[in-house]
Amino acid sequence: MASLFEIRDMLALHGKMEASALSAALHTPLSMMEAMLSRMEALGKARRVQEEPGGCLSGQCRQCPEGKACLREWWMLR
């Protein structure tokens, strides 16, 4: 399991990463990674950056029945 320091170092090395990429790189379950990233956000150490919906005008395309599955979310250091 990764520590907050390892997550910080990985974000510093790559600039911004998705939670799933961090999870795979640090061999940590995605749910745990999301919880740790949320904690870092609460501490003011990381911030969440969401992609603007550009290709899906209505938000209800065939690939994303939820309306938000096509939106990517990255994490980066503050």
Rank of each mutant, 00 (worst) to 15 (best):
S38V: 02
E73L: 05
S23L: 07
A2N: 06
L26K: 09
K45M: 14
R62Y: 14
M32R: 14
E34F: 08
L13P: 11
E66V: 12
L4N: 11
Q63T: 13
M17I: 00
L77C: 01
L30H: 06
P65G: 03
G15I: 00
A69Q: 03
R47G: 01
E6P: 05
P53D: 04
I7D: 00
A19I: 04
A12M: 12
E52Y: 08
L4E: 12
L13E: 15
M32T: 14
M1C: 12
A35I: 09
E52L: 10
A35N: 14
S58G: 05
R48G: 00
A19N: 05
L37E: 02
L4M: 14
M1Y: 11
R47E: 08
A21Y: 15
S3D: 08
Q50F: 03
E66T: 14
K16A: 09
S31Q: 15
M36L: 10
F5N: 14
M40H: 00
R48A: 08
G67Q: 02
L37Y: 03
A42P: 03
A42N: 10
L22K: 05
I7P: 06
K16I: 04
L30D: 02
R72P: 06
E34W: 07
M76I: 11
S58L: 09
L26I: 09
G44Q: 03
R47C: 06
A42C: 08
R62G: 11
K68V: 13
R62M: 13
A21L: 12
M10F: 10
L4F: 14
A25F: 03
S38W: 02
I7F: 06
R72F: 01
Q63F: 13
K45G: 13
C56V: 08
R78P: 15
L22N: 00
K68H: 12
A25D: 05
V49R: 09
A12S: 13
Q63I: 10
L77E: 06
L43F: 12
L11F: 05
V49F: 13
L22C: 05
L57N: 14
